[in-house]
């Protein structure tokens, strides 16, 4: 599904290398987790995959379903099946949540040569998915993320993912700032989407989300590299001993 080869990234504005050779392959149907201390480059990796400006790829390659991801505009990546649930979802005053979602949904369909859906049809699609995430009609009417609590913002990200049905889902610290109930809702939302044709890259600082979304593979990221890869037990190790033991071991 997603193949990252020796990815090196620096900031465009200054000479600061952030990713220093990331290698990662995520297969269809699998859930991979990336854990790592703050500042290790997890969010940067997710932004570079989604196509945010401000970063320069100095080496390496990324393909999604065999296509060169780095050549594409952010909207083309989305239409190709990539989705990033932001660590900090953006507030957009004046743009209704529903209008935003429908515009995105139809833009992706159009890009793929599929017919657009009417507002009424779309409402049906969204209502059902919103219900499962306990997102009420009021939240759908409000401007995107404006005045949403931390938990509402994260649930809104998952709603967008559920509606857009991407193939490669990247979740950047979707668990941060959530209470246990909200986290369960988010995890249920993710689990409901697990499918043989879909893959997940779950970035998290803590083990607790992984109690609810069982990963197939766990990677530890430090200083811009994947320093260790293992099974779910690796996450438990981090939970027990923190990152210091693992980092000392690979140093």
């Amino acid at each position: 599904m997603l193949e990252i080869r020796n990815l090196h990234v620096k900031l465009e504005e200054e000479d600061k290398a952030i990713l220093k050779g990331v290698d990662l392959t995520v297969e269809a149907g699998k859930v991979h987790a990336i854990m790592g201390p703050n500042g290790s480059g997890k969010s940067t990796l997710s932004y570079v995959l989604a196509g945010r400006e401000g970063y320069e790829v100095t080496e390496g390659s990324v393909t999604l379903l065999g296509k060169d991801l780095l050549e594409m505009e952010p909207e083309e990546r989305a239409a190709a099946g990539l989705f990033l649930a932001f660590q900090y979802p953006v507030e957009i005053p004046g743009v209704g949540n529903m209008t935003f979602l429908r515009t995105a949904y139809n833009a992706q369909r159009k890009a793929r040569g599929e017919p657009e859906v009417s507002a009424a049809e779309f409402l049906k699609i969204v209502r059902e998915k919103a219900k499962a995430l306990k997102i009420d009609a009021e939240m759908l009417k409000r401007p995107v993320n404006v005045g949403f609590s931390g938990g509402e913002k994260k649930r809104n990200e998952i709603l967008q993912m559920a509606v857009l049905e991407p193939k490669m889902c990247i979740l950047d610290e979707t668990d941060s700032g959530l209470d246990v109930d909200a986290m369960k809702l988010v995890a249920e939302g993710v689990n409901a989407l697990r499918d043989a044709g879909r893959a997940f890259l779950v970035i998290t600082h803590y083990q607790r989300l992984l109690d609810h979304i069982a990963p197939d593979v766990v990677h530890i990221m430090a200083d811009g590299r994947i320093v260790k890869t293992g099974g779910p037990e690796l996450a438990l190790e981090v939970e027990r001993n923190g990152y210091s033991d693992i980092l000392a071991e690979v140093a």
């Binding site: 196509g51 909207e75 989305a78 989705f83 990033l84 005053p93 004046g94 935003f100 833009a107 857009l164």
Partner: peptide, 20 residues
């Protein structure tokens, strides 16, 4: 970027923000 990351082309995304 947020709008584009959801698949909305740059021009349409900019127009949405202008309207907003």
């Amino acid at each position: 970027f947020y709008l584009r990351s959801r698949g909305i082309p740059a021009d349409a995304a900019r127009n949405m923000l202008v309207l907003a």
